[in-house]
Amino acid sequence: MRGISPPRAHSAGEADLAERVGRVASGDEEAFEQVFDALAGPVLGMARRVLRDPGQAEDVAQEVMLEVWRTAARFQPERGTVAMWVMTMAHHRAVDRVRSDQSAAEREHLAASRDRNAAFDDVAETVETQLEWHQVRRCLRTLSEVQRQSVTLAYYRGLTCQEIARLLGTPLGTVKARMRDALIRLRECLGGSA
């Protein structure tokens, strides 16, 4: 197993680093180890400054160094130094991670907000329905027994006035009058909303 050697960033000049990246492009693993030793520390430092999360910074640094291995052939010395090329990749990758995390957090917040609102709406609707039910029951108690009986048969059992008249053995006109009077009283009791 290979021992940990001190970083060679200071001893290796830019020309040596550029030459090593050229060898990495050809698949030279030893050259990649040398590039890795020279730049992994600064890449990790950049990622930590941007991300402020050591675990994510390590992930980003590993991704960047893997990208150096895969894309070494794309390095163009006329556009800048190897260190600048790699640090630019590190900065872009770290910023992308921050943006991705922010987007994910916003999506989670939005989803949680929707769930919370839906749950609140369901609870509010249930409470409102129960309050209305209690108010209707209270108002039904204000009716006479025969009025309450007619309304209950009509609205809770779904019977027509003719069916109620037959069931109670009461003239149809009497049932209709009871229903009319009962509905007027209920409307008043419920505050005109019925």
Score class of each variant (00 low, 15 high):
residue 103 S to M: 11
residue 152 T to W: 07
residue 67 E to W: 03
residue 39 L to Q: 04
residue 112 A to L: 03
residue 166 R to A: 12
residue 88 T to L: 00
residue 101 D to L: 09
residue 14 E to G: 04
residue 79 R to C: 00
residue 93 R to C: 03
residue 86 V to M: 01
residue 73 A to Q: 03
residue 119 A to T: 14
residue 131 L to Q: 15
residue 17 L to Q: 01
residue 26 S to N: 15
residue 124 A to W: 10
residue 119 A to R: 12
residue 117 N to A: 14
residue 68 V to K: 06
residue 64 V to P: 04
residue 41 G to H: 05
residue 150 S to G: 06
residue 49 R to A: 07
residue 5 S to T: 15
residue 127 V to F: 09
residue 174 T to H: 08
residue 157 R to F: 03
residue 5 S to N: 12
residue 53 D to W: 06
residue 174 T to W: 05
residue 68 V to Y: 06
residue 165 A to L: 11
residue 45 G to D: 09
residue 164 I to M: 02
residue 69 W to H: 05
residue 181 D to V: 13
residue 156 Y to V: 11
residue 84 M to W: 07
residue 129 T to V: 11
residue 174 T to P: 09
residue 145 E to F: 12
residue 29 E to C: 14
residue 69 W to G: 03
residue 179 M to P: 12
residue 79 R to M: 04
residue 66 L to Y: 06
residue 57 A to R: 13
residue 155 Y to K: 10
residue 139 C to K: 05
residue 21 V to L: 01
residue 109 H to T: 09
residue 115 D to I: 06
residue 57 A to E: 13
residue 192 G to W: 02
residue 160 T to G: 08
residue 20 R to V: 00
residue 157 R to K: 07
residue 64 V to T: 03
residue 92 H to R: 15
residue 2 R to D: 11
residue 101 D to V: 11
residue 123 V to D: 14
residue 123 V to C: 13
residue 57 A to P: 15
residue 16 D to V: 04
residue 168 L to T: 15
residue 114 R to W: 11
residue 64 V to C: 04
residue 161 C to S: 12
residue 16 D to R: 04
residue 193 S to W: 07
residue 72 A to Y: 00
residue 25 A to L: 02
residue 147 Q to F: 08
residue 175 V to M: 04
residue 134 H to E: 15
